[in-house]
Amino acid sequence: MGDSTTHGRVIFGGFPTVLTGGQNVRKVIFLTLFLITNTGVAMSIIGGKEVFLFSKVSAHLTYEGKTASNIPVHRIVQYEGEKFEDTIKTNENGFFSFPPLSKKEFSILPKEFVSHQKLVAEYKGKLYLVWETVKRSEEENSELEGRKLDLKCEITGETKFFHLMLHSIGTNCTWSN
């Protein structure tokens, strides 16, 4: 619902306020600044706010219990209609690490944060889903409610679902508490 002015009446969030003369400008400015500063948006307007689409993730991959060395791992993220995709290979010991994927957001009004995340390993021409979730909080490491994404994954393992406070994760990985 947008704000509108009709004959000295300003409507903020559905609540009409009668304004007269010089009060119009002062009240509109005060209410606007009040709403902006109390929703944490002032920083977003001035310099942008960093939001984490996918936190830093490190993992050790195995295939049927053996080190999965030198295999491609794809990170796929969808956010606000944009698709981000990058690929890295595991090292000779089966380890890989992606840096955090973030972007600056410039927004006047608060909005819902939704980042679709996937990690897919490619072994001998076959794709294995390693991690999938919908990240619902823009802070770093919110995928595991503040814990770092330091994973151990058996890529042939059965996908398990973990239900957390803000989201669920489908994965064949484990992590330490």
Rank of each mutant, 00 (worst) to 15 (best):
Phe98Leu: 04
Thr87Lys: 14
Glu139Ile: 07
Gly48Tyr: 15
Lys118Cys: 05
Tyr63Thr: 03
Ser69Phe: 07
Tyr63Val: 09
Glu112His: 05
Pro99Met: 03
His60Arg: 13
Val77Asn: 08
Ala121Thr: 07
Glu92His: 11
His116Val: 06
Ala121His: 05
Val77Phe: 12
Phe30Arg: 01
Lys135Gly: 03
Tyr79Phe: 14
Tyr123Trp: 12
Val73Ala: 13
Phe34Met: 05
Leu61Ile: 06
Gly22Phe: 07
Leu101Cys: 03
Gly22Met: 04
Val120Lys: 00
Lys83Thr: 15
Val120Asn: 00
Glu92Pro: 06
Gly40Tyr: 06
Gly125Met: 08
Tyr79Ser: 01
Glu50His: 07
Lys89Asn: 15
Asn141Lys: 05
Arg136Trp: 11
Thr37Lys: 10
Lys124Glu: 15
Glu122Ala: 01
Lys135Ser: 06
Trp131Arg: 01
Lys126Ile: 13
Glu64Arg: 07
Lys56Cys: 03
Glu122Met: 02
Lys56Thr: 11
Lys126Ala: 12
Gly65Glu: 08
Glu122Asp: 07
Val134Ala: 14
Lys27Asp: 13
Thr62Cys: 10
Ala42Gln: 10
Gly40Ser: 06
Ala68Tyr: 03
Phe96Cys: 02
Ser107Tyr: 11
Thr39His: 11
Val134Asp: 11
Thr62His: 06
Trp131Gln: 00
Glu80Met: 14
Ser58Gln: 14
Leu61Lys: 04
Phe106Val: 05
Val73Pro: 02
Lys83Phe: 03
Gln78Thr: 10
Leu35Gln: 10
Phe54Gly: 00
Pro100Cys: 12
Ser115Trp: 02
Ser102Tyr: 02
Arg26Ser: 11
Leu53Ile: 14
Glu132Ser: 12
Glu92Ile: 07
Ser69Trp: 04
Ser115Leu: 00
